[in-house]
Amino acid sequence: MPTQPDTEDGQSAFARALFDPSAEPPTDLAHIGGVVPRKRFNVYRNNVIVSLTESLAAAFPTVRKLVGEEFFRAMAGVYIRAHPPESPVMIHYGSRFPDWVAGFEPAGSVPYLADIARLERARRQAYHAADAVALEAEALSAIRPEHVANVVIDVHPSARVVGSKHPIFSIWRSVNGDETARPTAGHGEDVLVARPDETVEMRSLPVGAATFITSLSSGAALGEAAAAATQDNARFDLAQSIGGLLESRIMTGLRLGPDTLAAAEIT
């Protein structure tokens, strides 16, 4: 059989017309009874926008509750056309959504919306992050004092810190039915998001702790991370933050230098 070149058969035109509601359907579609098949082509347009809108709604449910269904769908439509997915793995779709929301003027009256989107993005990432087993409390408490400052802590792959000048944790809880949540305007909140087991957990962080955990995550030793946190806020409380690490179960390993050591070797 003779080989023919793989000719362009119009997928570029098809893709362009999908995202442009004012465009005519691709010219290579068969007419129906002499008529351009607009409604038929619109089935594909509708499928693309509706399915991607639902992906965003599943990833950002609190954003949707805050702005309402109608506004969310309109906003999602604009985002989808600006940033269609780069990969078929839809559980990761929406990585640019929080930053994009920050610049989306019609949502400007909800100044904390982008940070709520960041929080939800962190929750989604934590949900799908790699699994790891948290260390027991004894592992840390048994470290010899002269080693403490140099210990490098492996932070759970699901752990993420979201900082905000808005009370995002209280807002998130309030919108999702926690009647004890009392968002205070102008009171910023830093949130630790992690999934030590099956459930994504969140906790509000004390001052400096966001810097402390972020430093640890990037590989800084305990002493270094504590110094960075103290520099960030002089009221940083190391003992309290180490207690928080244990409670949130996000420490998965302890090392001195590049080699992973069993706790016994450090102690």
């Binding site: 997928q11 570029s12 098809f14 893709a15 362009r16 999908l18 995202f19 594909y44 499928n47 693309v48 399915s51 991607l52 992906s55 269609p84 997915p85 780069e86 990969s87 078929p88 839809m90």
Partner: peptide
């Protein structure tokens, strides 16, 4: 479902 513009999330 994939083109240079990205992933279109429908079976075209």
């Amino acid at each position: 479902s994939t083109h240079e513009t990205g992933f279109l999330n429908d079976l075209l």
